[in-house]
Design a protein around this nucleic acid. Structure first.
Length: 495
RNA sequence: GGGCCAUUAGCUCAACUGGUAGAGCAUCCGACUCUUAAUCGGACGGUUCGGGGUUCGAGUCCCUGAUGGCCCA
């Protein structure tokens, strides 16, 4: 057993703390005690004992957890066990445990996992506590946990060694818990509305559905390059063509682009598609679903994000993109031609690179001057067709589309449209994108012949939407950075 | 990709204009039968992120590299 024990692998010449902990490990072996634990059945998690005290007082419980605090008083010891459910105090007395069992406590270190059986009571100070009658090792810690009071603050360590962050910081535990509940609530909301969850390829020879550079990988047996998906859209719409009239997927997408407090190269996207619906229906669904999720996860539809109080209740504000940009800048960009747009953007202090399209510049202006002001939930509608190659054209103005983006707390959380189901128009849009690719725009869409073929078999009018799950979690947890809500955000490898 | 900032003991942080690297927690030894950031006494612990330079002398100044954070593109 012990010869399989992890030796101080990465560390130079075992630190003192490592050495003394290894010595304790060897002492345990000499006593015939397995420091890695025996089959153990707990009756309660630490938090359950604390929360269920009224019913448990005076009763026997068997608990387990990590030792996170140790207060020794000679012939008694108080120690705190912690797991994700909470923290529970143990009270260990020599006269209760006996000489031998109490003596073995010398071999316990902060960070160890212990199991204990005893009676639940409340101390004079009011702390719910288990008076231990018997205890056992469940897993030795060879390294010390982070500092008990200040915790682990170093941002890099928190991300690289998230397990330490989780041990030390309750806030991190709470954020990741809310992330899980959020995904569950989204799934629940869509399931209840008759959507079917589907799984589409994460690797394929052609990717699309977004303006982004994909990651490339290689399949050896087929000797063929594949891309990692950048969205879920084109496959989900194929499923709609196939007759599934309400589908969704919650999945990881990968975008080979810059990183920021709002962008991680891999992130979680929810997309859903509803046949015989349009973007208006998607708006209605969004302003219903998001508050519903908040209610399920947080118990309220009023949240605080970065100091601002935000009411998620419907109806959300609706505003054409054109008007929003004009209000914010005093310039009616949509009335200008390419040169005029460029000139106006420059006057506002932007520096559009020469190849940038008219609509892309306007989108830029929007991100810079409009988006930060969209704190209360807002739908910006009617996006230009050039930056919406998969959206249906407006009948009253073919240069615009039936599309919206939803913003909350200045963060873009959703993007939706009435889906383009005219294969000829779709082909024209792809060709236009292909021309941009030829001009060196690596983020332009790829021609997807099979998707066009699918449309040629007939897709019903469909409303579709994507929601950035990580950004939604940011809002619900008041997290300033996407890295806070991703368990293991991408970092440069440590050499 | 550019600018700014950070990197000191296991963790959290100090160290004035360049002059002997410190504290708290953790660890180890000792005391203590209701403590809870337990307390009290003692001890151990450093490649000051790496490399180069200036200087009698560098954690501190200069150059360079690494990693991270924030802002910008």
């Amino acid at each position: 057993m012990t010869e399989h024990s992890p030796e101080p692998s990465s560390e130079p010449a075992a630190h003192d703390f490592l050495k003394t902990r290894l010595e304790k490990l060897h002492k345990l072996a000499a006593l015939g005690i397995d420091p890695w634990g025996v089959p153990f059945r707990r009756t309660h998690a630490p938090g359950e004992v604390v929360n269920g005290f009224a019913a448990l007082e005076g009763k026997q419980v068997t608990v387990a957890g990590r030792v996170v605090a140790w207060r020794s008083h000679g012939k008694t010891v108080f120690c705190d066990l912690q797991d994700a459910s909470g923290r529970l105090q143990l009270y260990l007395r020599r006269d209760q445990l006996g000489e031998e069992s109490f003596g073995r406590l010398d071999l316990v270190d902060l960070g160890d996992h212990l199991g204990a059986r005893g009676r639940v009571f409340r101390t004079r100070a009011g702390e719910v506590t288990v008076a231990v009658e018997d205890w056992t090792f469940l897993g030795k810690a060879l390294r010390p946990p982070p500092e008990k009071w200040h915790g682990l603050k170093d941002v890099e360590s928190r991300y690289r060694q998230r397990y330490l962050d989780l041990i030390a910081n309750a806030r991190t535990r709470e954020i990741l818990r809310i992330r899980s509940l959020t995904i569950r609530a989204l799934r629940q909301g869509l399931d209840e509305r008759g959507f079917l969850e589907m799984e589409t390829p994460a690797m394929s020879a052609v990717v699309g559905g977004a303006n982004a550079r994909p990651f490339v990988t290689h399949h050896n047996a087929l000797d063929c390059d594949y891309y990692l998906r950048i969205s879920l859209e084109l496959y989900l719409k194929r499923l709609v063509v196939g007759g599934f009239d309400r589908v969704y997927e919650i999945g990881r997408v990968f975008r080979n682009e810059g990183m920021s407090s709002r962008h991680n190269p891999e992130y979680t996207l929810l997309e859903f598609y509803q046949a015989y619906a349009d973007y208006q229906d998607m708006m209605a669904l969004t302003e219903e679903l998001i508050p519903e999720v908040a209610e399920r996860v947080l118990g309220t539809t009023v949240i605080t994000y970065q100091g601002a109080s935000i009411n998620l209740d419907p109806p959300w504000r609706r505003l054409p993109l054109r008007q929003a940009v004009a209000d914010a800048t005093g310039v009616d960009f949509l009335a200008l031609d390419h040169a005029g747009v460029h000139e106006a953007a420059v006057r506002l202090g932007l520096e559009p690179t020469p190849g940038t399209s008219r609509a892309a510049i306007i989108d830029d202006v929007m991100s810079r001057f409009v988006q930060p002001q969209l704190v209360q939930p807002t739908f910006l509608t009617d996006y230009p067709v050039e930056i919406s190659p998969l959206a249906r054209r407006r009948r009253d103005d073919p240069s615009l589309t039936y599309r919206f983006e939803a913003f909350v707390g200045g963060v873009e959380v959703a993007n939706a449209y009435s889906e383009l189901n005219d294969p000829a128009d779709q082909r024209a849009r792809f060709l236009e994108q292909a021309a941009r690719r030829d001009q060196g725009d690596e983020e332009a869409h790829m021609m997807d012949e099979d998707f066009l073929t699918a449309l040629e078999y007939g897709m019903p009018p469909t409303g579709g939407e994507g929601i950035g799950v990580d950004r939604l979690v940011m809002l619900l947890t008041d997290a300033p950075s996407i890295r806070e809500v991703i368990p293991f955000p991408l970092l440069r490898p440590r050499k």
